[in-house]
Write a protein that binds this DNA or RNA. Structure first.
Lengths: 214, 214, 214, 214
DNA sequence: CATGAATGAGCATTCATTCAT
DNA sequence: CATGAATGAATGCTCATTCAT
């Protein structure tokens, strides 16, 4: 309910933090501005969060919980691994499109909290990445994906592709953003995954065309 | 020349900056520590650079000039687009391996300078990305790559994959880094580019296997 | 009555304040910690006391009332002035020993409240000191003490001696406190009062051995 | 030289700190006010001192060094222990009279720095007290003071007497201070030391008149 | 060119006090 | 009377930048 959000100080502070962090970056964001945006006193923030760093961590964890739940719902049973991968790409980019501020925080600002990079990279974020590697594992098991992929690495590769595309989009001033851009990126990534970039004529029969330059 | 580098204050400051930025992050890095590491006075830094931000920009531009020159040399004539792409991946990851501090700065810290993200993304960094899109254009023109790729987007996708893999590697404590990891990442990315992830059995004859989930 | 004390919020707050002030010092003591220790809400404290300063003042006055009453009882009729002085010293140091937290507050923390030093020094504290000057007056009147003493000053001198000795004792960590120490101090102060420090051989016949250094 | 003092930032900051601490108390003193009084920027203080606490510690140590040197000079050879004690009392009270602000800091504010009470009580302050116990030891050795005194305790007793008398004087508003007051205190303390408070008629022949009240 | 002492704006955080419930 | 969540003024300290030498 709307009214619930309106009275939920913790939630309002997190929303404000997302907005202010996205606008000014984590380091340039002033706690007092977050408070103002949230409509609370400066000190109130410290009733809910231990520090500015802690605020960022909590923002991340809260949002990631939502995101992961949404993704889990969207990647339900009855889909092939390929379909799930397609859906994952779509969901990731749709999220970026719908919540650019949040996307910017997750993409850019999070890297600046030393505490985060040290302690949290493996937790919520790992959980998110595991959604991806689970799909890859599943596809490999079902025979849809080639057996030579390494999901531990490939999840990073695909995430990196999504992340960079998202970063560029969310860092682009709104006026210059074009709606189709992210959709195009989705197509591009999906095509890369399914067929690579070689033209049919140049595909070798071997599964993996290695050593071309060796 | 060696002596030039040794006495070149500007160069020593940039080296020091790379080291300190990598260790503490851009915002937590103190100008006075950079000065100490470079063996110059605090004020001297401001004879060569306008500000701390400017120092980061210049570090980026200087290093990128070297990197771009190195890449241009390594991507000489006589190679197919595919071979060049393979080489590009190799060069990028080798650079990360050889200069992890620099890599960390370019991957992580650079994103924190608002000035950088606003004004410079398009310049040196664009030049670097253009090395990649040039290869893609060339492959498309020569028929080696399928015509449906969009080099403007695909360069971001491939760069994102490389960048994420690099970030993880350079953020991993040295003890836990294993030498093969980056080589494996190179293989994974290269395989993705050449053949995608589908097993041979699941490849359709159409160039692009779209709409699977639609 | 026990039940009164047990339920008396005011009393519990004062007890808690004494404890917290003694542990952390007046300025570092947090009102919220006093509330916690007293088992009341933060706001409740302000139903009984106007401010943190006021809490200190009231703590002082309350305790001093008890102390003064106890002293008056202990210094009953039938004692010579000398005996009363001896008893006073004993009572003061015994109080310190039995309530070190209170002693610390009275000795150290009280000096920090500007309001206290300005407005209250003359009241309850003066009453306490007057117990001492009354003894001195009495001794002078009865001929037991020499007529040349100035009770207005000497009360400060004796109090200062007691206070310093108490301060050292109550500031010493419990492990290193030795029980006899305060008893020894009592002896030392008492001996000083009765006979000074000169050996018998060096005592002159004149009442006051002044001008020795002049 | 005056000019030396004028340019000695460290010295000016210490002087300002003494003044501001004396006026407002350690906790209510603002660093920015000390800076203003010293004619330096806020940050400059932190070039010379680690923290506000450290400033107080350094103020204490610096002044105590001077004071101890002065006392050592004033207690030169050729004086009996009794004369030295007389001189010590005189010097202590003269110091208080000449530098009331400093005296107030040393007497009152110092007790508020937890760091001080914990770590420094034994050092410079112990050195000062040792001046006193040395005199007492000497007097006992020479036979001038009775052998039953315990210099470890008596030094505290005498210091406490001096300190209390000083505290009262320096806390009294200037208008109400009367010049002779400290001189009278000196007499009072000196008389107490030399002869105690008993009138000649009441002195027993035994060295120590104990057990009077037992 | 080089220095580094000095600057002072800037900000996260604390905590005594209030007041709606 | 009692609560304790909320307040917001207050301040010690940092550090990029300057400038007299």
């Amino acid at each position: 309910m709307v009214s619930q959000t309106a009275n939920d100080k913790r939630g309002r502070i997190l929303d404000a933090a997302a907005s202010i962090f996205a606008q000014h970056g984590f380091f340039h964001a002033r706690v007092t501005d977050i408070a103002k945006e949230a409509g609370v006193a400066d000190g109130t923030i410290y009733l809910y969060f231990k520090s500015k760093d802690d605020l960022l961590i909590n923002l991340f964890e809260d949002r990631m919980d939502d995101i992961i739940a949404t993704f889990r719902g969207g990647l339900g049973e009855g889909l092939t691994a390929g379909q799930k991968l397609h859906r994952f790409i779509e969901l990731h980019l749709r999220l970026v499109e719908e919540e650019p501020a949040l996307a910017k925080v997750l993409t850019v600002e999070l890297r600046q909290s030393s505490k985060f990079m040290r302690d949290y990279q493996a937790l919520k974020f790992g959980e998110y990445l595991d959604l991806l590697s689970d799909i890859l594992d599943e596809g490999r098991a079902s025979g849809q994906f080639r057996t030579t992929i390494d999901p531990r690495i490939l999840k990073r590769v695909i995430f990196g592709a999504l992340d960079e595309v998202s970063l560029v989009w969310s860092s682009t001033p709104q006026q210059r953003r074009e709606r189709y851009e992210l959709a195009d990126a989705a197509t591009e990534i999906w095509n890369l995954c399914t067929g690579g970039i070689l033209s049919t004529a140049h595909r070798t029969n071997t599964d993996i065309a290695r050593g071309e330059t060796a």
